[in-house]
């Protein structure tokens, strides 16, 4: 990554102006890395939840984290927007850089990080406010003034929800169905015009039809965003992602506690057809987990 862009991002992170949106690299040119993760371990107090994670997340790709329960994939996801900061005992070791800027540098403001790196959660969690206010909230706290109608419409269009709600923007976001609520949460996340979307099992509370719509939506919007998705559903990872990271757990003999670790990270096709590691193969073929 060129130094001048790094400096530019650093300046913008300090000044609070939006990140430049770079076009997808033409075919044949290596994709830019948005995140560079090396040797990361996350602790909750003395407990090491996940260890030895090294991977790079490329721009305009969907990266999937798969693995059995407790393997640390959600924990790892929450490191990318400093969501783990909300847990008092959480501690991150190793390097996570975003466009070459260390995300855990003391000078970095987690609030600015979260404006650039949006998040969609496992359970749809709209605010108990109107649909309009749900979407407008992010831009408002980011300092947007005046009429946000266009921003709200664009975000709802982007989340493929506009046609269903355009006549009832004043109604509570809670009045929508589960699948609509999750798309509302996606609209809320993209309303701040982030560069990255982190999705933590976004379809686990949804029926297959709603899941299909969210998956289609992800593939549609990866032109604009870089997406990292945590999923329990291997078919989902196979359907939507470009690259897949497989995590697993190992039991510490002494303490009898489970720690997650990254086993293999490669193109999704390779993970699901010719993985290098036996554990990956056992998992994706359903012999384990």
């Amino acid at each position: 990554m060129p130094d001048n862009l790094t400096r530019e991002v650093r300046l913008m992170a300090e000044n609070g102006s939006p990140v430049p949106r770079t076009e997808p690299a033409p075919p044949g040119v290596p994709q830019q890395a948005v995140f560079d993760v090396s040797g990361v371990a996350v602790y909750y107090g003395d407990f090491r939840a996940v260890r030895d994670v090294s991977l790079d997340v490329r721009q305009h790709e969907i990266t999937a984290f798969i693995g059995p329960s407790g393997c640390g994939k959600s924990t790892m996801l929450r490191c990318f927007n400093r969501m783990n900061d909300l847990i008092d005992t959480a501690r991150v070791e190793g390097d996570i850089s975003y466009h070459g800027v260390d995300l855990y540098d003391p000078a970095v403001n987690p609030v600015e990080v979260r404006r650039r790196i949006g998040m969609v959660f496992q359970k749809p969690n709209p605010f108990p406010k109107s649909i309009y206010d749900n979407v407008a909230y992010g831009p408002k706290v980011a300092g947007a003034k005046g009429n946000l109608d266009d921003v709200v419409e664009e975000a709802l269009q982007g989340a493929a929800l506009w046609d269903e709600v355009k006549d009832r923007l004043k109604e509570s976001g809670m009045s929508l169905s589960g699948g609509q609520q999750q798309r509302l949460c996606i609209a809320r996340a993209i309303a701040t015009d982030p560069e990255v979307l982190l999705m933590d099992e976004p379809c686990s509370a949804l029926d297959p039809i709603a899941t299909g719509r969210i998956e289609d939506l992800m593939v549609e919007i990866k032109e604009r965003y870089t997406i990292i998705i945590v999923t329990h559903n291997m078919q989902q990872a196979a359907r939507v992602s470009d690259r897949t990271a497989f995590f697993t757990t190992e039991v510490n003999e002494e303490s009898d506690r489970r720690t997650g670790l990254l086993v293999e990270y490669a193109d999704t096709d390779k993970i699901f057809t010719t993985p290098d590691d036996e554990r990956t193969e056992n998992y994706v073929t359903g012999r384990f987990g």
Binding site: N81, M83, L86, V111, E112, R114, R115, G118, M119, F121, K123, N125, P126, F127, P128, Y137, G138, V141, A142, C185, R188, A189, A191, T192
Partner: peptide, 19 residues
Amino acid sequence: ELREAAYGVGATTWEVTKH
């Protein structure tokens, strides 16, 4: 979930608390 939702779109602790 409510706190996470608000922090997730870039609200400060004060904004999350107040709103």
